[in-house]
Design a protein around this nucleic acid. Sequence first.
RNA 1: GGCGCGUUCGUCUAGGGGUUUAGGACGCCGGCCUCUCACGCCGGUAACACGGGUUCGAAUCCCGUACGCGCUGCCA
Length: 489
Amino acid sequence: MISDKVRVRFAPSPTGYLHVGGLRTALFNFLFARHHGGYFILRIEDTDRTRYVPGAEENLIKTLRWTGLDYDEGPGVGGPYGPYRQSQRLDLYAEHARRLVEEGHAYYCFCTPERLEAMRQEQIRRKEPPMYDGTCRKLSRQEAEERKKAGEPYVVRLKMPRTGETVVEDIIRGKVVFQNAVVDDQVLVKSDGYPTYHLASVVDDHYMRITHVIRGEEWLPSVPKHIQLYRAFGWEVPQMAHLPLLLNPDRSKLSKRQGDVAVEDYIRKGYLPQALINFVALLGWNPGTEQEIFTLEELIQQFSLERIHKAGAVFDIQKLNWLNGYYIRQLPEDQLIAFLTPFLERAGYDVSDREKTRKIILAVYKGIDKGEDIAEAARLFYDSEVKIEEPEAREMLAQPSTRTVLETFLQKLDQVEGLDLETFKVIMKEIQQETGIKKKALWMPLRIALTGLTHGPELPLVIDIFGKAEVRRRIKYVLDTYLASNPEA
RNA sequence: GGCGCGUUCGUCUAGGGGUUUAGGACGCCGGCCUCUCACGCCGGUAACACGGGUUCGAAUCCCGUACGCGCUGCCA
C-alpha cells in the first residue's frame, strides 16, 4: 500500500511553452499525487543556457495554472525542499559531481567537442555504436587535476561499469534489463559548469524526496545511468513509471510541423481546460469502464499507474473536438456567453449590444467544437448584405412560391406593430392558410432571404435577433435585387 | 548500426485461457427529429501484425519474424 507520503514532480524544461505531452505527464503526476493524498511538485529544469528563452518559465506556469493542475511545491509557492529552479541549485550539483570524482564514480574529461564529433563520425562510418572512447577515463587523477588547474576546459563524465547489467522494475513496463557495456559514459557536468539533466534530476529527486518518477518513455534508455548514480551516492532509487509517448497521426513522436503541440495554441483556438484534461487523460489511460466524460475529481478517484497502456497514443484532434464541443454545450449560460464573446470580438464583430450578442451565441453555439468556430457560425448575423450564392438557394429562389411567400410576408409585416416570436408564428400560419404553401416551400424562402443560406440557426431565433426593421429590409432587398423582374414588386 | 519499448476497428481503448457472433468512444455511413444545419436519439461499418509452439481450448501464455517508435548530444 502506498502511504500518504507520495511525492512526485513535473520537471519541464522552460523552452517557451507547455507541450501537450508535458501536460499529459503533469496530469498523470498530479492525479497520482492527489489520488494518494501526496504532493505534486513543479521543478524547473533550466540547465541549458544555450536554450534560454526569456519569459518561458512565467508562460509555462501561467499555462499550467489555466489547466487547474495546482502544485504543492515549486516556483512561486515555495516549499521545504527548494529552490525549485535548477539554475539556483548549481552549488549542490557541483558538490556532488566533485564527490563522484573523488570516490571514483566519475572522471574529468578534456576531450573537445570537435574531437568527440570526429570520433562519432568515424564510429558511425565503421558501423560501430557511437560511444565515448574512454580516452580521459584512463587519465590518472593527478594528470587530470593538473590539466584542470592549467585552465583546460573539461566536463565530468559518469564512470559507467563496463560489465554486468542494470535492472529496473518499471511500474508500467515491468522488468527492463540493460547491459552496462552498451551504456555510455554520460556527461554529468558541462564545460560551462552546469549539470546535465541526468545529474541534476537524480540529485534533485533525492533531495526533494521524490518517491515516484513518472515521465515520458523517451527517458527509459537513460535509466541505467540514473540507477548507477543513485548507487554511487548510496541513495535509494525511486519507483519508476515510463509513460507511453504521444504520437503524430503518422505515429512519430508528437511534434510541431504536424499540428499544434503547445497548450497555448489550444487555449487560443478556444478549447476548454476540462476538455483538454479529459482528452489527454484518456491518452494511454482508462479506468476499464465505459465512461468517457470525467471531471478532474473523478479522474483523481479512478486513476492508477497500473492501468496505463504501454503503447504510444496518437493525438486524435477529432475526439478532442467532440469532447470540447460537448463541454461547451454543457456550459451554464453565463459562462457560455463569457467564454464565446471574446471570439466574436476577435473576429471583428461588434459585441457592444450585450443582449443581441447573447442571442446570437445562444442561436449557434450548439454547432461548434471550439471557441474560434463561433466567428464563422455567427457570421450571417453580422454581414449587412445578403448574398445568395449556393446553387440550392438559387434554385429555391426561382420557385414561384418563393415570391409569393416573401411578398405576403412583407404585406403582413407592415400590418403588425412589432415582430416578436408569437407574431412571427401567427404570420407564418396565416401565409400557410392563405396560400396553401407549407413546410420547406414556406420556410426556406424566408431563411434564404434573411441569411442568403440554406443552412443555419432556427428561423424564429434569426427573426428575433434581426428584429422587424432588419427583417423587412432584408426581404425587400432580396425581392428588389434577386426577384426584380416582376413589376408588382 | 547498437540498445530499449511497443503491436486489438482509421483513431483512443476494453479484454489477463473458455462468459466473445471480440465490448465502448471518436470518425464515417444510414435513419428519426426538423424549414435547413447543428444538437439529441436510434442503427450500421470496421480490428486481435505474421509464423511457430504450450493447451482439450489462445486476442489472452512462450519463442521467433516483421513492422513501428524511442534513445544513441557538453538538449531535456
